[in-house]
Simulated scan of single mutants.
Amino acid sequence: MDRRTFLQGLGALPLAAALPGLISGPALAQAAWPTRSATMIVPFPPGGQADLAARPMANALTTILGQTVVVENKGGAGGAIGNSMAAKAAPDGYTMLMTLSSLAVLPEAARLAGRQPSYEMSQLQPIARVLADPTVLAVPASAPWKNVAELVADAKANPGKIQYGSSGLYGTTHVSMAMFTTAAKIDLLHVPYQGGGPSLTALVSGEVQAIASAPGPLKPFLDKVRVLACFGAQRAPAFPNAPTFQELGYKDVEFYIWAGLFLPVGVPQPVQDKLGAAAKAAIESPDVVRILENAGSPPAYMDAAQFSAFVAADSARLVTAVKAIGKVE
């Protein structure tokens, strides 16, 4: 089954009728919200990690909250367009954002390029973390490189000739690949796309020769890609034969793609609490767990307080990495 068919099939996801009971009680009585449908912005095209997290979650939230939660893909500028739309939305709880770790990178990247950021982290409130996967380095199954050493040797012999795709300038997969190329002292040609899905399509079709990706989106294409290494501190369970970059001697090459749910700052606390409780029930529901695990990206839930602390720490690390990389075209 291809990934698009898989994602379309999520629309038929059933949830146990008893799920709303998981979030009953005083927290729900504090707010009438929602009384109409809500939008979950995904700042990338269909097919990437944020989209993978958003669709089963939106479907589950629809059942739990009793109002439709519609996923809207607003790709472009490495995620900045959709992130900005969510950050500037009315703080009424009817616009949510399912985004990636590049959320913290993009404002700093804009400043490096001499531009005014289209949004700031301070405009968004973390509600729940859904996924947290280490990035992996993938090449086409037909590529001549069987390991990272062979890729590096070829890149050094042919600087600027090997193309790699990304989710956009300073997107999650650009920053992780820039970490690798900087550490390996190689020059690869960067080809930015409007999201992880299009960059994966480009890899499978042969437009580019390498990408960084979360494990989940690669799963439908196991016969068409080869994973050479994992950016995490431990090997990815979905690709146990792929060594970590740290195992290969690249001690500073470590990167994770997390996906999380946010609201614009200013949403009333009772609404935040109700959505947070609904998100917890959704993430823990057997159907959502099954879908995410089958996609190779098991849930990695954090509540609002835990996720806020995690985002602050991870953002500081990522901003430091972007500043070290510098302006990258």
Rank of each mutant, 00 (worst) to 15 (best):
D2L: 01
P140Y: 00
R111C: 12
A305S: 15
D92S: 08
A324H: 06
R129N: 04
P192I: 11
P144E: 09
F262M: 15
G25M: 05
E108K: 11
T135R: 06
A278K: 01
F255G: 08
A202L: 06
D287P: 02
G196M: 07
N83P: 11
E120T: 09
L203P: 14
Q163C: 03
D2F: 02
N59Y: 09
S118T: 14
Q234C: 02
T68W: 03
I81R: 07
S118F: 12
L13H: 02
E120Y: 04
I325K: 00
L151M: 03
A312W: 11
V105Q: 09
V152I: 14
P144L: 06
T201Y: 06
A87T: 11
Q49S: 10
G249A: 01
A312M: 12
G76Q: 04
T95Q: 15
L103N: 08
P43N: 03
I23L: 11
L203K: 02
A242T: 09
A278V: 11
R36H: 07
I325T: 01
Q123V: 09
V42I: 00
V328N: 04
S205G: 05
A229F: 07
Y170V: 06
V42E: 00
K88P: 13
L103R: 08
R36G: 06
Q306E: 15
G168P: 04
I162M: 03
R3Y: 11
V328D: 05
D187P: 04
T68V: 04
P91A: 11
N294H: 13
A321R: 08
T182Y: 05
A183R: 04
P140V: 03
A89Y: 14
A155D: 00
A31W: 10
N147R: 07
D287W: 06
P56E: 02
V152Q: 00
G232H: 10
G326H: 03
M121S: 09
P192M: 08
L189E: 10
F255H: 13
M177A: 12
A295H: 05
M177Q: 03
S308C: 12
I127K: 08
T95W: 14
W33H: 05
D2Y: 05
L292N: 03
C230S: 15
A86S: 15
P91N: 11
G93C: 10
R235L: 07
I23V: 15
T320L: 05
V267T: 14
V271I: 13
S176R: 07
A149N: 06
K88A: 15
L106H: 04
A184H: 01
Q306F: 15
R290S: 14
L131F: 02
F239L: 01
M85L: 15
R4S: 07
W33A: 09
L275D: 03
T63E: 01
T39Q: 09
S213L: 11
D133W: 05
G82L: 11
L203I: 01
L188K: 00
A316Y: 08
W145N: 00
E72W: 09
L22E: 14
L151V: 00
A277G: 13
A16P: 09
A17V: 04
A90E: 15
Q67V: 03
G197S: 09
Y256K: 05
N241P: 02
D92H: 10
S142H: 06
L97I: 14
D273T: 14
F255Q: 13
A16S: 08
A183P: 07
P215Y: 00
A149K: 02
F180P: 02
P107M: 04
N294R: 06
L124F: 15
R115Q: 14
A54S: 08
F255K: 00
S213Q: 13
D314F: 09
